[in-house]
Design a binder for these strands. Structure first.
Length: 296
DNA sequence: TGCCAGGTCTGAG
DNA sequence: CTCAGACATGGC
């Protein structure tokens, strides 16, 4: 067992807010999952973060981005009233630094789907082609590399319930194997180039690309616009105004600035979480009073 | 039963 | 370039 200060971390919000799809809550209070290829369990008790599994402190801290990213975001983003409300409601929510390849597949599967189903199909792919991993949470499987996914037939993939997305996953896996895209290089590329590279993949449009860039590549300005964000933007910012998703995204990046993607995730989670849902209290200082309401 | 789910692809105007 | 429909599947 390893420990370090939790720094106000809310694992429930962080691991189950729709940015990651493989964390499983256990009755014991642990969250069972993977950090890269390693089987890991995490929990917070009091103000202590604990983890088990064959991973070092640096790996856990990198995954949870306990490197000052969140504090920089708080300092540099434009904190308007809607964002301030979300920050106040989920002060322990953090963005993760996940594996770009696994995220690419995950978000291809997210198209016109829902979180529960994405989780099921991702788990299905792991069972079909990933290496077994025994842990406190039972037998699970690592997420397979592109080479292993490319070996699967469309019929194999459809057996997970992913439906018409199967050929997209297969084609994208093949593209990676053939060298048309190297997911590991995306974090080191600039945002525009990385986005263009992702858009070449089957099943990857603007929204999926931005999710991969934000949650897996450290491109914190990426602002994915989906049906939920469109709701937020129309309800809280531009009542009775219609824009296409590209226009919403462009406005949001200009409005929130270089850390717009972080703002997006807080707004997303806030909008999706019903009022009255249990909220984990943390020791984080309360944000200051709201600034101004944006003009339409 | 019919609609919706973290969209993307395709074909028409 | 912009905009409808189709698209597998499962839950409510």
């Amino acid at each position: 067992m390893n420990r370090r200060g939790a720094a106000g971390l809310d694992l429930e919000a962080t691991l189950h807010s729709g940015q990651a799809f493989r964390w499983v809550r256990q009755p014991s209070g642990w969250h069972d999952g993977f950090v890269g290829p390693e089987r890991v369990r995490l929990r917070v008790r009091g103000d202590v973060l604990e983890w088990g599994g064959d991973v070092g402190r640096a790996t856990v801290e990198r995954y949870l981005r306990l490197d000052g990213s969140h504090e920089t975001f708080l300092r540099e983003v434009v904190r308007d009233a809607p964002l301030e409300a979300a920050l106040g409601r989920f002060p322990g929510l953090r963005l993760l630094a996940q594996d770009p390849w696994e995220l690419l597949v995950s978000y291809i599967l997210s198209a016109n789907s829902n979180v529960a189903k994405i989780s099921r199909t991702i788990e299905g792919i792991a069972r079909l082609a990933g290496e077994p991993s025994d842990g406190a949470g039972g037998l699970r499987h690592r997420f397979p590399g592109a080479d292993a996914v490319a070996e699967l037939t469309e019929t194999d993939l459809r057996s997970t319930g992913m439906g018409y997305r199967a050929p997209y996953v297969r084609a994208t896996a093949r593209r990676v194997v053939e060298g048309g895209l190297d997911p590991a290089r995306l974090p080191g590329m600039n945002y525009e180039d990385a986005r263009e590279a992702l858009l070449e993949c089957a099943g990857v449009g603007p929204k999926v690309a931005d999710c991969v860039l934000l949650y897996g590549c450290g491109h914190v300005g990426a602002f994915p616009v989906d049906v939920w964000m469109e709701r937020v933007l129309r309800e809280r910012y531009f009542p009775r105004k219609r824009m296409n998703h590209a226009a919403w995204g462009a406005w949001a990046r200009g409005h929130f600035g270089p850390w717009a993607g972080y703002a997006q995730h807080f707004l997303f989670h806030d909008r999706r979480t019903p009022a009255g849902a249990p909220v984990t209290r943390t020791a984080v200082a309360r944000p200051r009073a709201a600034q101004r309401r944006p003009r339409a």
